[in-house]
């Protein structure tokens, strides 16, 4: 397989495709939260594996970039490994697991715990970019709703949740409003991560390959999770800190330890957890704590 790489252009895509995607990215930045249609290409990985994010990354990536790829917050999940390897092969770029060192971070389903910085780009893989899609399956209709800023349906849906459950029962892909104009899907990140999007110093780009859409949130941009005065937006809370590094106020994965109901909770962001452990932080199940 390695021998094939030389037959392809830098970062795989041909230049005409990159220009088309780059123009879409600029439009997306100029109209924050608006989904720009683009002529998405077939990629050498299946739709659903992050072809939108990969096309965005391939179009912005340069030889000086340092790339980090995460899936579920982790650098070592198989698809993150696979995408990182793809870019090593077709662009020869330096890769890292460090959130701080990366210039471009491609992600599926999480925003890193460490605050992002000015100049960094976060590229999201998006399955269904249309936040109104599950309320109205027709593109022709949802496009009109965005054009007219007609988001009543979304509020009705959220309010029905409250009427039925006493609270909003959406836990991920929780809709946000960008700069007071477009309602946007933050991709299937847990709502825990929504506040990190607000006024982030990093540029956030979203690529949906199968659905052929690109959208963006520029740095220092208002991103507000939809809510109601009597039911304000809340993020998930965990009862315990991370069992390995003791971190609190981070998103945790539940790990099943045995078939007798044994559970532990550990950081979903593997780099964050490892850095904390390296700095001497310990949780109740880390090696040191047990010995």
């Amino acid at each position: 397989m390695n021998a094939q790489a030389s037959n392809y252009n830098f970062a795989y895509l041909d230049e005409q495709t990159k220009r088309m995607i780059r123009r879409a990215i600029l439009k997306a930045i100029a109209v924050p939260g608006y989904q720009v249609p683009f002529a998405s290409r077939e990629m050498p990985m299946p739709y659903g594996w992050g072809t939108g994010g990969v096309q965005v990354t391939a179009s912005i990536l340069g030889p000086d970039d340092v790339l980090k790829v995460i899936d579920q917050g982790a650098d070592d999940t198989t698809n993150a490994v696979s995408i990182r390897k793809f870019f090593q092969r077709v662009a020869g770029v330096e890769t890292t697991t460090s959130t701080e060192e990366a210039t471009i971070i491609q992600t599926r389903h999480r925003i890193p715990e460490a605050p992002l910085q000015e100049g960094q780009v976060l590229v999201y893989q998006v399955p269904i970019p249309e936040p109104l899609r599950f309320l109205e399956p027709r593109e022709t209709e949802t496009r009109k709703m965005h054009a007219l800023e007609e988001y009543g349906l979304m509020h009705v849906k959220l309010y029905e949740d409250i009427a039925r459950n006493g609270h909003i029962a959406t836990t991920y892909a929780y809709p946000v409003k960008v700069e007071g104009r477009y309602v946007m899907d933050p991709s299937p990140t847990p709502k825990f991560d929504n506040p990190k999007m607000h006024m982030s110093p990093a540029l956030q780009l979203f690529g949906a390959g199968r659905e052929k859409r690109i959208y963006a949130v520029p740095p220092h941009t208002e991103v507000v999770s939809l809510d109601f005065e009597d039911h304000p937006f809340e993020v998930q809370r965990f009862d315990k800190p991370c069992a390995l590094c003791g971190a609190e106020q981070v998103y945790l994965d539940e790990v099943v330890l045995d078939d007798r109901g044994g559970r532990m909770f550990v950081c979903s962001d593997t780099h964050h957890c490892e850095s904390r452990q390296a700095a001497g932080h310990r949780g109740e199940m880390s090696g040191e704590a047990l010995s």
């Binding site: 252009n9 990159k18 220009r19 912005i60 990536l61």
Partner: peptide, 8 residues
């Protein structure tokens, strides 16, 4: 290829 990337 690389000039276009850097300018973009």
């Amino acid at each position: 290829v690389l000039n276009a990337q850097s300018v973009f």
